[in-house]
Design a protein around this nucleic acid. Structure first.
Lengths: 315, 315
DNA sequence: ATCGATCATGCACCTATTGTGCACGGTTAT
DNA sequence: ATAACCGTGCACAATAGGTGCATGATCGAT
């Protein structure tokens, strides 16, 4: 289970620490115990002869040298990933472990089939799927726990498109639909605009969550300020709220609506066509790896099939 | 004493193996036992999931994948050295170990003072000097046993100026003199040309040795084919041979002639002014390291002082 | 062909690196 | 003041990783 990476695991630990800021969180993310993380970082400083950490309140903080090292290590990691991938591709070799990460519907609709396919085409490959939210997926990528993540990219999210640590591939744009109670005046319509629903009570996720920013982005695009009446965490909960007549909500096309008979799904028309973008992310440099290539191919096919299954859709 | 490097030591071992071709030689060079090297390479293949070695007769040989990996790892190592050096420089940090390598007179005249200076300016730095011939110095650099080498560069040698693994700095050009018996007809002269000594019996090192190629290069430059009468390994032996009237020889200016009273040293004039070029070599990327910078500075000063001590010389 | 030399590797054994679990001291929030 | 949190040191345990020797395989020389 240990280092499949050529870079000293302690440096990886330092990188994870740089992301989450505390020894405890680093331990949780890497799978080590807090004392192990502490010892690793101490050893790293001793071996390199650098002071990387300083006491800061009840925690520790990276020194300037530490930040410098972490920042510079990005290209180092990418270089290694690139080399490893190229060597795997050049030698027609097989790797033994492959970690996947993803979030909710993405995981269900894309990762599960991918894992199943890989399991059949490469019987002796050990595939592991971890469900985690996008932010954690990136952490897991950094921590080398997973090799590929399928995540939802926000337009206005903290993650930047050109992070030197990752490479991303767009899989598909999943449009957001509106779900309203079946006894709603607009329930017989095929399509609506967000403006028409401006005065409705909305149901969304808690502020700060992954989908809340998607929600607000959709409305700011059309210049409407929605009234948020309720908050739900799971899609199922939100659907139940809508079914109970508490309000209306946004639901990605990929999220199934099977169990709710008193809720209808309407497509959104107008200038603001909100969508969530589903992308695959890998560590920078690993794109050339045969397994990553194959996986991306499978995901692309799956995405195309999903798009094709839609009746007559906007591109 | 172990990994001061962030790159997996097993990859370093693989790189050393790529240079010397046998497990035994790799073990000797890295300081491990043969079984350890064997186990390391086996582990490396298991972890990476690549077949890097193949049986070849009674030995093993790199596969195409293995060669690819080794070739690509050059930039990876350089990248790390560069990062480490930059971090050291940025953070005003000190490293604890510093390995020097060099050859014969170079070691004596340049490395010894350097080591002494470093020992005084950085008391808690552990300086280690290894005497080794140029080829082995490069091996030791690859094996991370030393960090800086002072070696003699041949014009027509196997090492290439732009090896992606090393960076080299010219320290000084050390001209070759002629040594002849003091009862020789030309002994009263100040200078001679190689043409004048074309028919003399020459004393040099065995073919294939470091200085033999320097020797032949000097003569091919003036279009003369010398008659090699005797072979000697040490300068002292050669000088003794000349003193005994067995022939004449070439001697670098830096090699001292103190103990021989019946031998005279003559400068060479004419179009072919043979010289050996003394250069400092480090792993590519480590030039930015404060210690390397300081060391190179000290060496340059020392080289300049040596040049200045010469009466009136060719540039 | 035979013998010896050379080379890689497996095995038994040992060392020491490295991880865990728990307790402790310092720091912040209530 | 008390409680919660964070990082670290320590005893102990696991295991990765080392050595030394014996073994098998191959090549060169007599």
């Amino acid at each position: 289970m240990h280092n499949r990476c050529m870079i000293d695991p302690r440096l990886i630990t330092l990188r994870v620490f740089a992301r989450c800021g505390t020894v405890g969180a680093t331990a949780e993310l890497t799978g080590y115990s807090p004392s192990a993380v502490s010892a690793q970082l101490r050893e790293l400083q001793r071996v390199l002869g650098m002071q990387l950490l300083t006491k800061d309140g009840r925690g520790v903080r990276l020194t300037a040298t530490g930040r410098f090292l972490v920042a510079g290590s990005d290209t180092l990691i990418a270089e290694w990933e690139s080399l490893r991938s190229a060597a795997m591709a050049a030698g027609d070799q097989v790797q033994s472990r492959f970690g996947l990460g993803g979030f909710s519907t993405a995981a269900a609709q894309l990762l599960a089939p991918l894992a199943a396919t890989l399991r059949s085409t490469r019987p002796l490959l050990e595939v592991q799927v971890l469900e985690a939210n996008p932010a954690r997926c990136f952490d897991l990528l950094v921590a080398e726990r997973i090799d590929l993540a399928v995540i939802v990219a926000m337009q206005s999210d903290t993650y930047v498109e050109d992070d030197p640590r990752f490479e991303q591939t767009v899989l598909l744009d999943d449009p957001l639909d509106v779900i309203i109670p079946s006894n709603h005046p607009l329930a017989s319509r095929e399509t609506v605009t967000l403006e028409e629903l401006a005065s409705e009570p909305w149901i969304t996720e808690a502020a700060g969550s992954t989908y809340h920013s998607l929600f607000t982005a959709a409305f700011t695009a059309v210049g409407v300020t929605p009234r948020i009446a309720h908050e739900a965490v799971e899609w199922e909960t939100q659907i139940a709220f809508v079914g109970a007549g508490l309000g209306v909500g946004l639901l990605p096309r990929l999220a199934p609506l099977h169990s709710a008979e008193n809720v209808v799904r309407l497509r959104i028309t107008g200038k603001g066509k909100p969508a969530r973008r589903i992308v695959a992310a890998v560590r920078r440099g690993s794109l050339a790896s045969p397994l990553v290539q194959e996986s991306l191919g499978i995901l692309q096919v799956r995405a195309k099939r999903i798009l094709a299954a839609r009746p007559e859709d906007d591109l």
